[in-house]
């Protein structure tokens, strides 16, 4: 006797009725009130059998354990560094999570990371009060030297990365730039040619704007195909640094 009120992939607003009847189950960002299932934020409906959930489209980042993020060092602490995570909560990177080098008591910590440095780190713990611990021990986690930073909507990050990193590798191929994407919506781009870097920035902005529309990969492909430039010099991403392993989100 249950009735579903929305189509799959439809955009719903808070308080909108998704289904009536007890046959459907509320999941992420939906709630039940009597026999109705309602949306509890702005998002895209995903119907998985009898389970209804929302995929958020907007909002700021909220730190989550296991996320790889790009942050900026904002403060030197007694035994580590405070890192801005582009969210309401800053993170702490302890000395022992930062480097395997021996750091003597009273050493000048700015030698390792100074205020203003950008770092790619992984969240190891988030407490109930949203105190965040991060580490730099892991594949691809490091200090980011040079390059430029772009901020994007954190909910669009899975689209920028693509399935098994397909989207980001496509951009890398066309623009010959190094790209690192943090779950918190901070993207680091570095290339030899500023024009190529700019193309990368524009491509990422395009993905961000059109992330929720179908046929994204094809559109980005033709966008890059139209604007591709001859590679200047060496091929960047063949040569250095191990890439971060991108896994598909959710």
């Amino acid at each position: 006797m249950s009735e579903i009120k929305v189509k799959d992939k439809e955009i719903v607003v808070p308080g909108e009725t998704l289904a009536i009847g007890m046959d459907y189950l509320p999941s992420h960002w939906t709630y039940r009130e009597k026999d109705k299932i309602l949306a509890s934020r702005l998002g895209l409906v995903v119907i998985e059998g009898k389970v209804l959930k929302l995929v958020p489209l907007s909002g700021v980042y909220l730190p989550k354990r296991g996320d790889t993020i790009i942050g900026q060092v904002t403060e030197i602490l007694l035994s580590g560094w405070r890192i801005d995570t582009n969210s309401a909560y800053s993170a702490v990177m302890n000395m022992k999570d930062a480097t395997s080098e021996f750091i003597a008591r009273g050493a000048d910590l700015t030698k390792y990371f100074d205020i203003g440095d950008w770092v790619m780190v992984k969240i190891i713990n988030v407490t109930s009060q949203n105190l965040v611990d991060v580490t730099m021990k892991g594949p691809g986690l490091r200090k980011l030297k040079g390059g430029r930073i772009v901020h994007v909507n954190t909910h669009k990050v899975p689209r920028i990365i693509g399935k098994q990193g397909s989207m980001v590798s496509m951009i890398k191929q066309y623009t010959n730039c190094r790209i690192l994407v943090g779950q918190n919506g901070v993207v680091w781009i570095s290339g030899d040619d500023p024009a190529q870097e700019l193309l990368t920035v524009n491509t990422i902005k395009k993905i961000e704007n059109e992330a929720h529309l179908a046929g994204l990969t094809d559109r980005v492909h033709s966008y890059l195909e139209k604007r591709k430039m001859p590679h200047s010099g060496r091929n960047i991403h063949e040569t250095d640094m191990p890439d971060v392993q991108y896994s598909e989100q959710e």
Binding site: V13, P14, G15, S40, R41, S58, G59, V60
Partner: peptide, 11 residues
């Protein structure tokens, strides 16, 4: 508030 992705039960 809805546009900002704040969890809300209604408008």
């Amino acid at each position: 508030l809805a546009d900002a992705g704040i969890p809300m039960r209604d408008l």
